[in-house]
Design a protein around this nucleic acid. Structure first.
Length: 798
DNA sequence: AGCACGCCGACT
DNA sequence: GTCGGCGTGCTC
């Protein structure tokens, strides 16, 4: 039998099947979807078995070396999905398979040198390497020998050394020692003077069930030595048992029963339930204002799915995957829930993945990659905050979670629910057209009013002589909350406002020498750092351009706001939440808990506080600069502005007390800001659609982005022009090719970047044309330094 | 991506 | 003559 295999080499030339002979002893074992080790040229690497066939066209076949999995890690559905993913996003198949699995399953190959003779026989420079060990990592040999590496080749030729490729799996199963009493043992053989041993034996005996060794030691206050002597006498049996890491560290959740639905929720639930029961692949858009109870609908829909004996995937944006949301699912569904997010360690993610893979859980709550959860009996996929950009993966494969979810729903004949208060225009347009089924929740639960929103014109503030970052009304509102003992949230839209350094005399801004981007100031070590390549330099004391001393940290970061805030409101207790204060594990939750406990009056933060926050005492939300996002040169900037403002507004007045929102803006008349006042998504949608139509942007047109980069500027320009010309000559006359133009970030890591944008309506041969281009420049991309990257559904045009 | 093979210049 | 530099092409 033949194993047709995709090998773990992400390169254009190896992006195809390689056939391997299955040795007789593995014939009953190897199945599609398993990982195997195969010889590839002179080395050994990992591969995925795609299919098993009887014959091969290749005359001389090598044999499969080893099987890594007892059961396939990829189901036939996921194998198919991977092929589809590679084709639609134009990436290597291996990258598509790799993204569906936890990182722990990725193997690394170690090249080792093994000594075959006595180390004294080696040439002198090689001897110290092998003095201690018979094997040495190739990497270490390179480090130690440097230019004398040629001696290794000689020793290899002379048969003194041999190269071995050792495949290392990263996956480590967590093992724990367990004990039980040996039934056949004669317990009376313990001397009565051995108090500790007797204590331990009795403790284990009374438990009846096996117990963790560690638990025995803690309970009896003994040392391992005592237990060990019992084990050696075979009175107690000890063995290693695999356990799952518990990322929630033993937190137990109180069960929470379903909440009664409002009429509106009930109305929305009926068609969802029907689709679940009818096993229909249908995509719903659940459009509900903030606080309208979407989560309760998700929970009860999942409950319905579980009653059918099926599984559900609950997708949430990474940033809102807080313990708050997790606990809501855990307390409803208990042990049936797995959680997947970037905060987990590689090992923890692997454990959660295996719980899904072994069908030990019925529900997975997770970010983007959880859409690939290896369920085989999927009954529902929910995507909360459907409009969130984090659902788009920005490196290969550049997939959109929504597309994958819908693809899987077709395979499993199950519904998809897209939920949002502010759906992306693409999604809402499809719901309008009837491609998706629209379900609306227009009211908050318990008829809580939407918060009142006021817009403060910061230009007027300036005219009135207020140069601070807080308007008079915001200051007054904050002071009022302090007096009433209520809490406020201050939101700083950091996108567009970076923490750059600027000379106040000549306006000089330090830039990265490898990337055309301003350096970011890092207070911790008083340095300037590039966010793209990591380049770091010390903060200059004087301006390199004009030698002025007035060069300093500029931008309006949260730190700066915090300083200002404590200056003008010294009595206020402030909690700041941004990337700096939430870097360590669990700090996110600690800060939120502190705020929830009323340890602070004001929560100041960036994007990460815009969603999921649900505290009864928040009655004021202030947005410091509502329009910073609006000026980012991106056709979606108005949409993002409206979405984020609507989202933060939703944090206020979710409970008894009514909420108030203050938006400070320099362009208060813009519809994306104005319409937050009335929480009027529909009007925003219509106005924005008009803009999109006029400029032929999505959802009226599809879009694709080609980015060409190379260290040699003339080469980039020339190649970009040729690519653009080729596209113009190949694609339909209705298709618009913009560019080549310089990318918004003109240079990253010393590579100059140009891009072409493709706007099209119907272009069945687009994928083919783009693949043609990749093929045509294969030489330049593999041997030269040219890079061509494709994004079939770009979200950011950088 | 690695890795070997092979063809040129500059050294013992 | 040989060592080692890098361009070229292959991996079932």
């Amino acid at each position: 039998m033949i194993a047709r295999t995709i090998v773990d080499v992400p390169a254009a030339q190896t992006d195809r099947l390689f056939d391997y002979l299955i040795p007789a002893h593995l014939e009953q074992i190897i199945q599609p979807g398993m990982r195997i080790i195969v010889p590839f040229g002179p080395r050994q690497i990992q591969g995925f078995v795609i299919e098993v066939t009887a014959t091969s066209d290749v005359p001389k076949l090598k044999s499969v070396q080893e099987v890594l999995d007892p059961v396939p890690v990829l189901t036939s559905e996921l194998l198919q999905l991977g092929r589809w993913l590679a084709h639609t996003t134009i990436c290597f198949q291996i990258s598509a398979f790799q993204v569906m699995l936890p990182a722990a399953l990725k193997t690394s190959v170690m090249k080792e040198l093994h000594l075959l003779v006595a180390h004294r026989e080696l040439e002198m420079p090689l001897q110290p390497l092998f003095q201690q060990n018979k094997k040495v990592l190739w990497k270490d040999a390179v480090d130690h020998l440097g230019s004398q590496l040629g001696l290794v080749r000689k020793a290899l030729d002379a048969g003194q050394l041999v190269v071995h490729y050792v495949v290392k799996e990263k996956a480590k199963k967590k093992m724990e020692k367990w004990v039980k009493v040996n039934k056949e043992a004669d317990l009376t053989s313990i001397k009565s003077s051995a108090h500790k041993q007797l204590e331990i034996i009795h403790f284990i005996e009374q438990k009846a069930e096996p117990i963790r060794s560690q638990e025995v030691l803690t309970a009896t206050q003994s040392t391992r030595a005592v237990l060990k002597s019992l084990i050696e006498k075979k009175l107690v049996l000890e063995w290693d048992q695999e356990t799952y890491r518990d990322p929630l560290q033993g937190v137990r959740y109180k069960p929470s029963p379903p909440l009664p639905f409002t009429d509106e929720q009930q109305q929305a639930f009926i068609p969802l339930k029907k689709a679940i029961v009818d096993k229909r692949s249908e995509t719903f858009l659940l459009h509900g204002v903030t606080g309208s109870g979407k989560t309760e609908i998700y929970l009860q829909a999942i409950d319905e799915v579980m009653k059918q004996g099926k599984e559900a995937i609950m997708l949430v944006p990474e940033i809102s995957l807080t313990p708050q949301i997790v606990s809501r699912f855990k307390s409803r569904f208990g042990e049936e829930v797995a959680v997947m997010h970037s905060g987990l360690s590689v090992g923890e993610k692997y454990d959660e993945w295996r719980r899904i893979h072994r069908s030990e859980v019925k529900v997975v709550v997770g970010a983007r990659s959880a859409v690939f959860a290896p369920f085989s009996n999927l009954g529902l996929i929910i995507m909360d905050e459907e409009h969130e950009t984090s659902y788009k993966q920005e490196d290969m494969p550049r997939y959109h979670t929504k597309e994958v979810a819908i693809k899987r729903s077709v395979h499993h004949q199950c519904p998809v629910i897209l939920g949002s208060a502010t759906p992306s225009l693409e999604t809402f347009a499809r719901a309008q057209k009837g491609v998706y089924t629209l379900l609306s929740l227009k009211h908050r639960v318990n008829n809580r009013p939407m918060p009142t929103v006021d817009i403060v014109d910061m230009r007027e503030e300036l005219r009135a002589g207020n140069r601070s970052m807080f308007s008079v009304s915001l200051m007054e509102a904050l002071k009022r909350r302090l007096e009433l003992g209520e809490q406020s949230v201050l939101f700083l839209n950091r996108r567009g406002y970076s923490t750059f350094v600027m000379c106040r005399d000549c306006g000089y801004v330090p830039q990265c020498e490898h990337c055309d981007i301003s350096l970011t100031y890092h207070r911790s070590n008083h340095s300037l750092k590039c966010h793209y390549c990591g380049h770091e330099e010390t903060m200059p004391v004087e301006c390199p351009e004009c030698t002025s001393e007035h060069i300093r940290f500029f931008g309006s970061g949260t730190q700066k706001v915090e300083e200002e805030l404590t200056r003008v409101l010294p009595e206020a207790r402030v909690i700041r939440m941004d990337v700096d204060t939430t870097r360590t594990k669990g700090s996110h939750q600690r800060l939120l808990d502190a705020f929830g406990n009323g340890d602070a009056d004001i929560l100041l933060g960036t994007q990460m506080i815009a969603k999921g926050l649900d505290f009864p005492n928040i009655t004021l939300v202030g947005v410091l600069a509502a329009d910073t996002m609006l000026h980012i040169p991106d056709f979606r900037s108005a949409e993002r502005t409206f979405q984020v403002l609507e989202q933060v507004s939703g944090r206020a007045g979710r409970h008894q007390r009514p909420g108030e929102v203050l938006l400070q803006s320099y362009t208060p008349e813009h519809y994306s800001i104005e319409l937050v006042k009335s929480h009027d998504y529909d009007t925003f949608y219509q106005m924005e659609m008009r803009q999109r139509k006029a400029a032929e942007y999505p959802p009226y047109r599809y879009m694709a982005l080609v980015t060409i980069s190379d260290p040699d500027l003339p080469n980039v320009i020339q190649k970009a022009q040729k690519i653009s010309d080729y596209l113009k000559s190949t694609l339909g006359s209705e298709t618009v090719i913009l560019g080549p133009v310089v990318s918004p970030i003109a240079r990253i890591k010393d590579r100059y970047r140009y891009q072409c944008m493709i706007k099209y309506k119907n272009e069945p041969r687009l994928t083919e044309a783009l693949q043609q281009i990749l093929q045509h420049y294969l030489r330049d991309t593999t041997q030269g330094k040219l890079q061509i990257s494709l994004d079939m559904h770009p979200y950011f045009f950088m």
